[in-house]
Design a protein around this nucleic acid. Structure first.
Length: 745
DNA sequence: AGCACGCCGACT
DNA sequence: GTCGGCGTGCTC
């Protein structure tokens, strides 16, 4: 028998080996093996069974060892690795290394404990003799005779105050037997596991929750891949809905992966989840998976899942690679959270990988959020994902009214520049009369500003990258921060010829002045990076605001987080679309989510709050726009920069992968990069490509193209570091909207 | 990755 | 001439 192996040796190639008789049937696809490469042993994953096509069979070496008795990667994980390698432009070995916990790879974490068992009893006479001649051995013997189960050698030695020599003597006589046993640390029953009995009681579901639960049950019953976006407002009880689905999946004999953002993995939440999970499926063990586990805990959890002993794993990002058997359900809670992104090579997005793994396993994937990410929402709108909504809060607190004001119309009506819309002014005045508070949130981020027509809302964008171009006032030019393209700023709107084209961006100061004009008697405080340079000032202002000494708080995003003021019943979002237009679509999304969060907080228990959103591109359009701003991101393995140069000469392939549906765009990026490197080096760089994705099954438009160029690293390292610093990297290199496993056949 | 092979300039 | 700095290609 011959096998093709993916070696974990730093290069990305399948090597073939002969499987010796002794290993035979135990070696299957997904097995972790040790194989000889040149003159040393490396780990590898069996990727296929069969002889090589272009290598003489006689020359094949033997597989040296089978590291794990069961396959280390399930078939779905193996195909997931292949997909990720192509999608995120990195070697499959890198992916496999992240999939397998280090402890599993070098079986170091396997804590072996020596156990002692009785092998043969001694006749009375022998024992008498032993008592005289070797009292220590006799003592040990007497103890061991009473034991029914194997006992830990270390324990026996300390308890009976013996040395290892005594044990060895009895083992040699054949009286005792030493056994090595893998220790099962119980990663699923730590000190937090119990004592949460109350939380284990399932609360009654409201009709909406029940309906969502039933819809998920139906999807699960269909027993095939599907994605459901569970869009539930804060406090609508999404967790209960997940738990019902988990229950159904377990009842059907399937496995479950439950992903939460890393920060959510506090002992309390873990304990609560585990309590509930173990209550809905008695006897089921729940493995917890996060980065702070010890090696031992990790390997035990891994083994429990790989062997099928445990079927549920709750964990952060990397838990998506857990070797769960017969995977039926993947839950991604708070799917919009940036914590799902890995910002080291291999850069991947846990949520996207979750969707793909579900697809490969034929499972149901549930993405849940109060503020779904744009791409998930777009996928739901496009009908690719099923959309379930929970609009009622469990506590029945009212949701605020959200008014979107189109500033184009506002400016038209007032015949002039307008900072605050009529709607917002009225609302502010009425709040002031009622002694309620207002927050005006000015959406300004960085100093990127775009060119926008105040008549038609047109924004200039880069023809190559479809992102908004940045206006540079110093030289009156527009630049694309992604590809570096530039052109003179137009004097009139290219679309409607209007001359009312201006660069956008209101300062807190101007807003403050405007507020002072319309509510002269109100106490107004400004809060932005300029005025809040001192920490205590920041606290003081927030304190004053909370105490009711301030009526209107005007600020930038710094007031966005953690604002929970009971007396605030109005929130105004000025220039909502500024961050919709900055060339970083991830920022758009943050603004959008912030909006939803702010909206959720506005209002008092008894009455719904109000939110006024001022925009030139009313919401639907704005979202649409930011979807276009999605570009074929630089998915890419990181620049490989090694500083430890030594002989043998490093020669590096600096490669950048560019993915996306538009080959021209990709080529353009690649060429831009090549140019930059050339300029930095002062000599020619060879650009090669595109090389197609190694995955044949993916439809052509989703096929990657990998463009790469080679250059001598000696010169490049320093230069690239500089380049990197002044190059505006897309905020999110792995993030792409067109994650679309639904359309891959 | 790590190692061998083979190229080219400057020396035991 | 050959030694070693360095680029390239291969590893079953």
């Amino acid at each position: 028998m011959y096998v093709g192996v993916h070696p974990l040796a730093g290069f990305d190639k399948v090597l073939h080996y002969r499987v010796p008789e002794s290993l035979g049937a135990a070696v299957v696809v997904g097995s972790l093996v040790r194989v000889p490469i040149v003159n040393r042993l490396h780990l590898g994953i069996v990727g296929e069974i069969g002889a090589p096509k272009d290598f003489p069979v006689e020359k094949l070496k033997n597989v040296a060892q089978l590291v794990q008795p069961f396959p280390a990667l399930t078939p779905d994980l193996l195909s997931l690795a292949k997909w990720m390698a192509a999608y995120y432009a990195c070697g499959i070995d890198t992916i496999i290394e992240t999939m397998l916990p280090a402890a599993v790879r070098n079986d170091a974490g396997l804590k072996i404990e020596k156990m002692l068992v009785m092998a043969e009893k001694l006749p009375e006479a022998e024992l008498e003799k032993l008592t005289k001649r070797a009292p220590q051995q006799a003592k040990l013997y007497r103890f061991m005779v009473q034991q029914f189960k194997p006992v830990k050698k270390s324990l026996v030695l300390t308890r009976l105050d013996l040395t290892a020599a005594v044990v060895a003597a009895l083992v040699k006589r054949g009286v005792l037997r030493e056994e090595a046993r893998r220790v099962e640390r119980v990663a699923y029953a730590d000190e937090w596991g119990s004592g949460e009995v109350v939380a284990a009681m399932p609360p009654l579901l409201n009709p909406q929750q029940r309906a969502a639960g039933e819809a998920l049950a139906a999807s699960l019953k269909a027993d095939k891949f599907g994605v459901t976006l569970l869009h539930g407002v804060t406090g609508s009880g999404k967790t209960e809905v997940y738990l019902h689905a988990v229950h159904d999946a377990l009842a059907a004999g399937g496995g479950v992966i439950f992903l939460v953002p890393e920060v959510a993995l506090t002992p309390q939440t873990v304990a609560r989840l585990r309590g509930r999970l173990e209550a809905i499926a008695p006897g089921q063990k729940t493995v917890v998976w996060h980065s702070h586990l010890s090696e031992g805990e990790r390997i035990d959890g891994w083994h429990a899942l790989a062997s099928g002993e445990a079927r549920v794993v709750v964990g952060a990002r990397s838990a998506i690679f857990a070797p769960v058997q017969n995977l039926r359900l993947v839950v991604v809670d708070e799917e919009h959270e940036p914590a799902y992104k890995q910002d080291e090579t291999p850069r991947y997005h846990g949520r996207d990988v979750a969707v793909m793994r579900a697809k490969l396993a034929g499972a149901l994937c549930v993405l849940g959020s109060a503020t779904p990410s744009l791409e998930s929402f777009a996928n739901a709108e496009a009908g690719k994902y099923q959309l379930l909504q929970l609009t009622q809060r469990v506590d029945d607190r009212k949701l605020p009214h959200i008014n979107v004001v189109d500033m184009k119309i506002e400016i038209m009506n007032s015949r002039g520049m307008t900072t605050l819309s009529r709607k917002l002014v009225n609302a502010m005045q009425s709040r002031f009369e009622k002694r309620e508070q207002t927050i005006l949130f000015i959406n300004r981020r960085g100093y990127s500003s775009s060119m926008m027509c105040t008549d038609c809302g047109h924004v200039e964008e880069c023809e190559h990258c479809s992102i908004t171009m940045t206006y540079h006032r110093s030289d009156e030019r527009l630049r694309c921060h992604l590809c570096g393209a530039e052109r003179p700023a137009p004097m009139s709107c290219p679309k409607c010829r209007s001359v009312k084209i201006r660069w956008r961006g209101l300062g807190t100061q101007r807003v403050e002045e405007a507020v002072r004009r319309v509510v002269p008697r109100a106490r107004i405080e400004r809060m932005d990076a300029d005025t809040m340079s001192k920490k205590h000032l920041f606290r003081q202002v927030l304190g004053d605001f909370r105490a009711g000494k301030i009526d209107v708080l005007v600020g930038t995003q710094m007031i966005g987080k953690g604002l929970d003021f009971p007396n605030v019943t109005l929130v105004g979002l000025i220039d909502a679309d500024i961050s919709m237009h900055i060339p970083d679509f991830r920022a758009n999304e943050r603004t959008f989510q912030l909006l939803v969060q702010v909206a959720g907080r506005a209002g008092r228990g008894d009455r719904a709050g109000e939110v006024v959103v001022q925009t030139f591109t009313p919401q639907a359009e704005a979202i649409q726009f930011s979807r276009q701003a999605d570009f074929a991101g630089f998915a890419a393995s990181e620049l490989k920069m090694r500083k430890d140069f030594r002989y043998p000469p490093y020669r590096h392939l600096i490669h950048h992968g560019f993915r996306g549906p538009n080959p021209e765009k990709l080529q353009f990026f690649a060429e831009q990069w090549a140019k930059r490197v050339e300029a930095a080096l002062g000599d020619k760089v060879e650009l090669r490509g595109p090389s197609p994705s190694p995955i044949e099954k993916i439809k052509d438009e989703y096929r990657w193209q990998l463009w790469y160029f080679t250059a001598q690293v000696t010169k490049v390292v320093a230069e690239l570091t500089k380049l990197r610093a002044d190059f505006t990297w897309p905020d999110d290199v792995t993030q792409v909207l067109d994650v679309d496993p639904m359309n891959m056949t």
